[in-house]
Simulated scan of single mutants.
Amino acid sequence: MKGSLSINQPAVRNVINRYFLKRSGGDSRFRIMSPYALFPESRKLDYQFDQIKAEVDKLIQAREVRPYGDIDPLRAAEVSENWRLYYAYMLGETNPEAYRDCPTFIDFAERTPRVVNAIIAILEPGVTLKAHKGPFAGILRYHLPLTVPRNNPPRLRVDKEIHTWKEGEAILIDDTFEHEVYNESDGDRVMLIIDIRRPMGLVPDLVNRLSLRLKRKWAGQFIEQSNGDI
């Protein structure tokens, strides 16, 4: 499929985004917060942390996780071509390889209705995600760091707030604010990223569900291109 999920139909996306953000508190909405108030289901991932980390470590050793530039080159040009991503679950479609690669993570994604995307993200030393905004306001983004280098650990800026990741300490961010990431350490940062439907009222949530359903046609492409080689 040509184009980019993040870039196509900008006029329609901008109208929907403005509607969602207005219904979510406008500029007064949070930037970075603990996930448990809005995503209490994530506590299960805390309990399963060691098991998930072991599965992901094994996956990384066995599989060449593809750079974002190979998956969505148009969007990657705006963010980073070298950010490595493995889509375990996208827009309601499961990566069939994930049942072997990360079974605990994929079981959580499939059993949690609010989950939109479930991704394993690797940020190598020296890789920076340039200042950008999330393209779709219908989601909030959860981060659970599995591996964080101790020497000059990677950090995140969302609007004017700065966060330094710590292994096993999850956060929730609103990525529609401008944000950027720096890895100036000497090691890889390995992260679970989960996108959940943004909590909104009944009508905007229905609009959100419909919008996500229409985007589902992109899922297979992203999953296939992120799989890489064993």
Rank of each mutant, 00 (worst) to 15 (best):
M1Q: 14
K2N: 08
S6E: 09
N8H: 11
V12Y: 02
V12M: 06
I16H: 09
I16P: 00
K22S: 06
R23H: 12
R23E: 12
S24F: 12
R29S: 13
M33A: 14
S34H: 06
S34Y: 02
Y36N: 04
F39S: 07
E41G: 03
R43H: 08
L45M: 14
L45H: 05
Q48S: 02
F49L: 07
F49N: 01
Q51N: 03
Q51Y: 00
Q51V: 01
K53D: 07
A54M: 06
E55P: 05
V56S: 13
K58C: 11
I60E: 00
I60R: 10
R63F: 08
G69H: 03
G69T: 04
G69M: 09
D72E: 07
P73K: 14
L74V: 04
L74N: 02
R75N: 14
A76Q: 03
A76H: 04
A77R: 15
A77H: 06
E78P: 01
V79H: 07
V79E: 14
E81T: 05
N82D: 12
W83R: 04
W83N: 08
Y86A: 05
A88S: 12
Y89N: 00
Y89C: 00
M90N: 04
L91I: 00
G92M: 04
G92Q: 09
E93L: 12
N95R: 14
P96R: 12
T104D: 09
I106R: 10
A109C: 15
T112C: 08
P113G: 06
P113N: 03
V115C: 10
V116L: 14
I120C: 13
I120T: 14
A121K: 09
G126Y: 08
G126F: 03
V127P: 00
V127G: 01
K130Y: 03
H132L: 00
G134W: 05
L140T: 13
L144Y: 09
P145E: 10
L146E: 01
T147N: 14
V148E: 05
P153Q: 12
P154L: 05
D159Q: 05
E161F: 05
I162F: 15
H163L: 13
H163P: 02
T164H: 06
A170M: 03
D175E: 11
T176W: 07
T176V: 09
F177W: 12
Y182Q: 11
E184L: 14
E184K: 10
S185A: 11
S185R: 13
R189K: 05
V190R: 09
V190M: 07
M191D: 08
I193L: 09
I193G: 01
I194G: 00
I194M: 01
P199H: 05
D205V: 04
N208H: 01
N208M: 10
S211A: 08
R213D: 03
R213N: 12
R216D: 02
G220W: 07
Q221W: 03
F222M: 08
N227E: 12
